[in-house]
Nucleic acid binder design. Structure first.
Length: 313
DNA sequence: GTCTACCTGCCC
DNA sequence: GGGCAGGTAGAC
């Protein structure tokens, strides 16, 4: 569920309801959700309680808020979040009974708050929940550093500062400052399979397993084509295809879901309707009619059309 | 570079 | 019970 388009939908949904607000309380229900926090819960509480949220930015699938102290001065830290494979950030519905903390992981399967791990209480009375079944996501603070190229650090960032914890993450394809020809050249210097390169967040961020398969299908390129075998034209074509499919998904995500609600059932919703390759093993290619294949490549599923997607070496 | 671990739950 | 799941980081 949280691929780049959905993280961007979450970012846009968070902005109007969190910017200018002050955090009054951090409610921690499962300490594993803050395992990346240096100094643990005490440090997180000290950094957040009484701090105001002044911007919400995103690079790839990493989200963060900028923090200000009660005088309005930047604290020099960001509150970072990552949704992992199953995370959701959403506001508690006013008046709805909250799951008891002691029963946080024991409620009925239909209870969406069964996996509530942490909540931020805001000064307007709102409660923002981090819900995450598999606990691969997290929330933690990170000091701000200058972005290498001096451009705005990320989508939604007010300046060139970005959290140290996201400094190793490349720009994503929805970032206006992303340099596609330069990314294409970077792909072409590596001998690894092009899909591995697309999933490498230090080369280009935000592309996950679904959109890698979709982009490669759209660009008629097989997953195991070495980066060094790509022409500049083909490499750029793959990146443009990846951007286009994520933009389309963002449009759908922005219209068919609540801004802060991400459906837990990954196989329903718009994916089932608009994916051309991912999860379509054994179904006909919509371009040529051949049956799509699924192979395990480096421990993950890859879906491709054996006719349209030829391997180049 | 590639493999494995981190987690929980669902589907076969 | 085994396989699989949209991610990432750390280990070899």
């Amino acid at each position: 569920m949280p691929e780049l388009p959905e993280v961007e939908v979450v970012r846009r949904g968070l902005a109007p309801r969190t910017l200018g607000r002050t955090i009054t309380d951090v409610e921690l229900l499962d300490a594993r959700i803050i395992r990346r926090q240096a100094g643990g819960a005490d440090r997180l509480r000290a950094a957040l309680e009484g701090s105001a949220l002044t911007a919400v930015a995103r690079r790839g699938k990493f989200l963060w808020w900028r923090l200000a102290d009660p005088d309005g001065a930047d604290t020099g830290e960001a509150l970072m979040g990552h949704l992992g494979m199953s995370g959701q950030l959403r506001f508690a519905t006013p008046g709805a009974p909250a799951a008891a903390p002691s029963a946080a992981s024991e409620g009925p399967a239909s209870d969406p708050l069964r996996h509530r791990r942490l909540s931020l209480h805001l000064d307007d009375g709102a409660r923002l929940d981090l819900v995450d079944q598999r606990l691969f996501g997290g929330l933690w603070t990170s000091p701000l550093v200058e972005a290498a190229d001096g451009s705005l650090a990320a989508v939604g960032s007010p300046d060139a500062l970005l959290p140290e914890g996201a400094a190793h993450i490349a720009r994503d394809l929805l970032d206006p400052a992303a340099d596609l020809p330069a990314i294409a050249r970077a792909l072409r210097t590596r001998r690894s399979a092009v899909k591995t390169l697309l999933l490498n967040q230090e080369i280009v961020s935000g592309i996950g397993n679904i959109y890698a398969d979709e982009a490669l299908w759209a660009a008629r390129t097989r997953y195991d084509t070495p980066g060094t075998a790509l022409s500049q034209r083909r490499a750029l074509g793959i990146l443009r295809a990846a951007r286009a499919v994520m933009e389309r998904a963002l449009e759908v995500g922005g219209t068919s879901f609540d801004a802060l609600y991400v459906n837990v059932d990954g196989r329903s919703g718009y994916f089932a309707r608009s994916l051309a390759a991912y999860g379509r093993e054994g179904e006909p290619c919509t371009r040529c009619g051949r049956l799509l294949r699924r192979v395990v490549h480096q421990g993950r599923s890859s879906h491709y059309c054996p006719r349209c997607q030829r391997r180049t070496t």
